[in-house]
């Protein structure tokens, strides 16, 4: 057991974790944030993507103890002031969602991209989400959603 403190979706969090617990497990089990999904448990599918200190990571491959002192963003932190972010709205508008299971991880990979590059090219978008598997949409509308979100965020549209 060890005690960790980190920032989760802009709020401080402090809790006891077992040494072998992953960040994914702590988010889902200890903190009941089930928006982050488990698709494989070994970093192959991207469904559990969250952002740690600005970087997208597979939370199933990160030990909870490692995020002590870090800033963590999950899908639950993507809405602001009770409103969908332009990125979330663009996912809905372009038909980038079907079953929705890859969506939280996909949105977090896209958010991490837009944080480091507010105006990404199409190849940069494709690269940013190539570790996030989607079995439903054929990716094309997801790529369009991220492109559209970048445009809206740069022009401060919703």
């Amino acid at each position: 057991m060890q005690h960790i403190t980190f920032t989760l979706n802009r709020e401080p969090v402090s809790l006891e974790v077992e040494d072998h617990w992953t960040l994914l497990r702590v988010l889902r089990e200890s903190l009941s944030l089930t928006g982050t999904k488990e698709g494989c448990g070994r970093g192959e599918c991207g469904a559990c993507t969250v952002i740690v200190d600005g970087k997208p990571v597979n939370s199933c491959l990160v030990l909870a103890a490692e995020v002590d002192g870090c800033e963590v963003l999950t899908i639950e932190g993507e809405m602001r002031d009770g409103k969908l972010s332009p990125l979330q709205q663009a996912f809905i508008d372009t038909g980038a969602i079907q079953c929705g299971f890859c969506t939280p991880g996909m949105v977090m990979s896209a958010r991490a991209l837009l944080m480091r590059n507010p105006d990404p090219s199409e190849p940069e978008i494709v690269e940013a989400i190539c570790g996030n598997l989607c079995r439903c949409t054929g990716y094309e509308p997801i790529i369009r959603a991220i492109k559209e979100a970048a445009r809206r965020e740069m022009s401060h549209e919703r």
Binding site: E78, M79, I92, F101
Partner: peptide, 20 residues
């Protein structure tokens, strides 16, 4: 018409069996 389940899914609030 955009899918009616879009908001739940894009906010992570849609509950799947494994989330329960």
């Amino acid at each position: 018409i955009p899918r009616i389940d879009g908001i739940e899914k894009v906010t992570g609030s849609a509950v799947y069996a494994a989330d329960m």
